[in-house]
Structures are given as structure tokens and as C-alpha cells.
Design a protein around this nucleic acid. Structure first.
Length: 373
DNA sequence: TCGGATT
């Protein structure tokens, strides 16, 4: 039972925020699936060409803060006019906000004013995007592509230029390293139409961009919500069978940090997002985190070892054992991604030099890929 | 002895 914030409360909370850490696209790091408008007449519409035309009243709102509820969305947009319907899109399984929603006004003029008034509004750590929703249609579904192997020097504009020959691009993004801002060589392209995306896969998958050393891969993106498996294991890292290992006596906790630094009385997602230094490190920020290199794993080592070693130190979002392709044996190293810097640092300090059977682990933050001399 | 990557 959360009391919805009034628009004034939401807006006033904006004033105390630091500027949004916008990426190259000028937008926050939330997932931005563009989905068809959920406002679809279920009954045959009455005669008349404009009877079911929402194109001038129905808005899609992207980059909503994770914590914003449908009621808050309605409250914010309701301040600009009467709302016919309002829908925050949530994950089917978890009920978590997917960070976007739809607002359908009664009057087209209000929708137009809402774009002018609310597009670009900073809410907590996000900069919301307000635009007309495209009509719901099967042809715009599954039009989102995942691209990897991009040259590090390629920017968003350049990537769009490469793909735009296949159709109208709705959104694009290149993922960047959270510290250096350097491209991670992977990105997303959403086309207006699925057939355009299909053509782009046919035309660009395995191709080398002009001047590039490596070919890119182009495939349909995973639907948001499917995470890399095993995350739940980190919640029950009970195993101690690798010897005496002492998890940090003093766990670093977000709520403690907040209490100390900001005098916040209790833990809440809203409070996390209100703290600039912690922005984007909460739950639901896939792809972010601190990557840790683990060396001297046994050939038989598997992912569960890494979960068990690192889980006690805090939030682990991903683990990976690197294996030889032919033998499927571990090549002696692996990677662990942890959400919080402090927890990662404690894990490294605790596990570097840790004896695992006959082996002594070397654990450090991952370095940048070394290139040959 | 530092991958592949999924907003």
C-alpha cells in the first residue's frame, strides 16, 4: 500500500537530483522496449473512420523510473488533461515495471501539450521520453535487433547510418563501459517494422562495416525480462565446502550508506535513485556492474564454484567460466560481475590468494583487453 | 592469465 505521489511531489523531487547520467543517446540506462499500444478495442468499432483512431491522443512514455507506479504515471499526466486510459507496462512474471507505459488522453490537444510539457522531464535518475504511440499492430512486433562485434570507434549515429538502409529506425543504442564510457561493441536497433529488421539481419549479419577488422553479428534481441540464469543461486550461497572462508564481518549495505550519508530513514528504491552516486546500481540494471577476473580455477571448475565463492559478499549478477571449445574444460579463469563496487572490492580483497583445494586464486578487477604488441 | 556481452 504505497501512497501515490502527486505530480507536485514527483516534480519537486526532481529539484534535489543531480543531472541524469545520460549515455550517448541522451537517455538513461533503462530498457526501452517499444511495444504496441495496449489500448485495443476488443469489440467491433462503430462505423466512422476516427472512431478507433488514437494516433493523436495516445502517448508512449519511455525511460520511466523503475519505482514509478501506474497511479503516479496517471497522476503526472492527468495534470495536463483528462485521461481516457493509462497503462504502465509490467513484467508478466515479476510485476516489475518495464520502464514504459501508455497514456491515452480524451483530447488530442492535451496529448500535444503533454509532449511539450513532459518530454525530457527528469524524474529521479531518468529523463523521460514522451511521444505519440504508434498504432498497435502485429507488424511492429519483434522488430528489435541485437548487434555485437561493433568496432569500438563506431558511434550511435554511424550505426544508425549502417542500418537505416533497411528501414525506419525507432530507437538505437550502443552499450558503453560504465566507467570509461568506451563502447562495449554491442548495441540495439529497433526498426519500425519486423520485415525491415529481417532484411537488416539478412543484409548485415556477418558483414564487416567499412574499415572494420571483424564482422558484426546481427540477430533478433532477447525479449526483456529473460536474465542470465543462476541469479537466484546467489541468494543461497550456503556452500562452505571449499574451506574456511570468512564472508565480510561488516557487509556493505545500501541502506547503511544511505543512512550515513543522507540521513534517509529507511530503505526504499526511491531513496536509492535519489542518491546520485548509487544511481543505476540497483536491481533491474542489467549490463552494469563490476567485472572481476578470477584466475587459477581447476579444469573441472564450473559456474557454481563462482556463485558460491562470491555470493556471500553481495549481489552477483553474472558468473562465467571460460572453457576450451574442444575439451570443454575450464581454461583456468573466469569472470564474476557484482553490482556494487564496495562489495566487489571486499570480495577481491578476501578472495585474492584464497586457497581452493591445491590452487591459490588470483582475483582482481578485470583489466582492459590486452592487445598484441 | 582477462570473454562475451541482451538496453
Amino acid at each position: 500500500a504505497v501512497t501515490p505521489l502527486s505530480p507536485q511531489q514527483i516534480l519537486s523531487s526532481v529539484e534535489s537530483q543531480a543531472p541524469s547520467p545520460a549515455g550517448p543517446s541522451g537517455c538513461g540506462p533503462v530498457p526501452v522496449p517499444m511495444s504496441p499500444c495496449p489500448h485495443v478495442p476488443t469489440a467491433p468499432s462503430p462505423a466512422g473512420p476516427s472512431a478507433c483512431d488514437d494516433s493523436k491522443t495516445n502517448l508512449i512514455v519511455n525511460y520511466l523510473p523503475q519505482s514509478m507506479s501506474q497511479e503516479e504515471l496517471r497522476s503526472l499526466f492527468g495534470s495536463l488533461g483528462d485521461i481516457e486510459s493509462c497503462k504502465l507496462v509490467r513484467d508478466k512474471v515479476t510485476g516489475q515495471s518495464l520502464g514504459y507505459g501508455f497514456v491515452n488522453y480524451v483530447e488530442a490537444g492535451d496529448a500535444d501539450r503533454a509532449i511539450g510539457a513532459l518530454n525530457g522531464l527528469k524524474l529521479q535518475t531518468k529523463t523521460i521520453k514522451v511521444s505519440y504511440a504508434r498504432p498497435s499492430s502485429a507488424s511492429i512486433r519483434d522488430a528489435n535487433l541485437y548487434v555485437s562485434g561493433l568496432p569500438r570507434a563506431m558511434g550511435q549515429q554511424e550505426m544508425e547510418q549502417l542500418f537505416s538502409q533497411y528501414g525506419r529506425i525507432i530507437t538505437s543504442r550502443i552499450l558503453v563501459d560504465q566507467v570509461t564510457g568506451v563502447s562495449r561493441g554491442v548495441g540495439f536497433i529497433r526498426f519500425d517494422k519486423r520485415v525491415e529488421a529481417e532484411e537488416a539481419v539478412r543484409g548485415l549479419h556477418g558483414q564487416k562495416p567499412l574499415g572494420a577488422a571483424e564482422p558484426i553479428t546481427v540477430k533478433f534481441a532477447n525479449t526483456p525480462g529473460q536474465k542470465s540464469g543462476g541469479a537466484l543461486l546467489s541468494l543461497c550461497p550456503g556452500a562452505r565446502r571449499y574451506g574456511t572462508l570468512h564472508p565480510p564481518p561488516q557487509r556493505f549495505r545500501l541502506d547503511n550508506l544511505l543512512n550515513v550519508a543522507y540521513g534517509v530513514k529507511r530503505f526504499s528504491p526511491l531513496a536509492i535513485e535519489a542518491v546520485p552516486a548509487l544511481a543505476g546500481v540497483g536491481l533491474g540494471t542489467p549490463g552494469a556492474g563490476w567485472c572481476i577476473f578470477v584466475y587459477n580455477l581447476a579444469p573441472e571448475a564450473d559456474e557454481s564454484v563462482l556463485w558460491q565463492l562470491f555470493g556471500p559478499f553481495g549481489a552477483v549478477t553474472n558468473v562465467k567460466v571460460i572453457r576450451d571449445f574442444a575439451t570443454n574444460k575450464c581454461k583456468g579463469f573466469g569472470f564474476v560481475t557484482m553490482t556494487n563496487y564496495e562489495e566487489a572490492a571486499v570480495a577481491i580483497a578476501s578472495l585474492n590468494g584464497y586457497r581452493l583445494g591445491e590452487r591459490v586464486l588470483q582475483v582482481s578487477f578485470k583489466t582492459t583487453k590486452q592487445h598484441k604488441a
